[in-house]
């Protein structure tokens, strides 16, 4: 039997020490299999963002183990975790996080740049990714010339251009109106079903969580609910 894609085993994350100690995550066990679409919910301060940071290899557990494709991420160096992100992960943020004054195309090319891909192929793949999110005609536009929904679609194109195993979306619809939010969620679902990309998405809107297969709810740093989506 192959190892699950993502496996949190007794993971805790503690910030600060002594009186200022904050236990953001407390003994979390979580398994996400390849091809899953998980919505992570919880109120603010519940630990869901900390959990996302650990899943995204941006942070490491204080105790417990996080295995990504069977590899213990906690034992990896900073650079090795960067390589893990480069090759297997895609990120979509609430604030889009696109490079300002840089065209949509170049934003999408960015992850490929760090893969050392030659310019021609980089361009071709970035255009294909933009096409997949329906923005091929906006390739030359800078983020400030695009609407919020379009910016988030550029961010999705940037996440999927590397054919990642997992896309981590941290409140991807937090800054968008409900119609645009649904479009973005449709797009993520399509990536999940048609390309088989695993998706972990933090959200606090039930309507958005309904797009997922599975809902995991955090409260005070613990997983309090883990169920199939309705």
């Amino acid at each position: 039997m192959t190892a699950p894609l993502v496996e949190l085993d007794g993971v805790s994350r503690v910030y600060g020490r002594g009186d200022a100690e904050v236990r953001a995550l407390e003994d979390v066990d979580l398994v996400i299999d390849s091809g899953d679409f998980v919505a992570i919910m919880g109120s603010s301060g519940s630990g869901k963002s900390t959990c996302m940071n650990i899943l995204g290899c941006l942070d490491v557990p204080s105790s417990g183990t996080y295995r990504f494709r069977g590899a213990d991420v906690g034992a990896l160096s900073r650079d090795q975790r960067a390589l893990l992100r480069r090759h297997y992960l895609g990120f979509v943020f609430q604030g889009f996080n696109l490079l300002a004054r840089t065209s949509a195309l170049e934003n999408v090319e960015l992850p490929l740049l760090y893969r050392g891909m030659p310019g021609g192929e980089r361009r071709r793949r970035a255009l294909a990714a933009l096409d997949a999110v329906g923005l091929a005609d906006r390739a030359k536009h800078a983020p400030n010339e695009l609407s919020g929904g379009q910016q988030q679609r550029v961010a999705i194109a940037r996440a999927l251009v590397t054919d990642p195993s997992v896309i981590l979306a941290d409140e991807p619809t937090g800054n968008l109106d409900s119609k645009t939010s649904r479009e973005i969620l449709e797009m993520l679902r399509e990536l999940n079903t048609e390309r088989g990309i695993t998706i972990a998405m933090v959200t606090h809107e039930l309507e958005m969580a309904a797009f997922a297969h599975r809902v995991v709810r955090f409260h005070d740093g613990r997983v309090v609910e883990d169920r199939e989506a309705a």
Partner: peptide
């Protein structure tokens, strides 16, 4: 700083 964060998130190593 944000640009650096984005680059690190998409997989840039410190040395890059």
């Amino acid at each position: 700083t944000r640009e650096i964060g984005i680059r690190l998130a998409v997989g840039a190593r410190g040395r890059e």
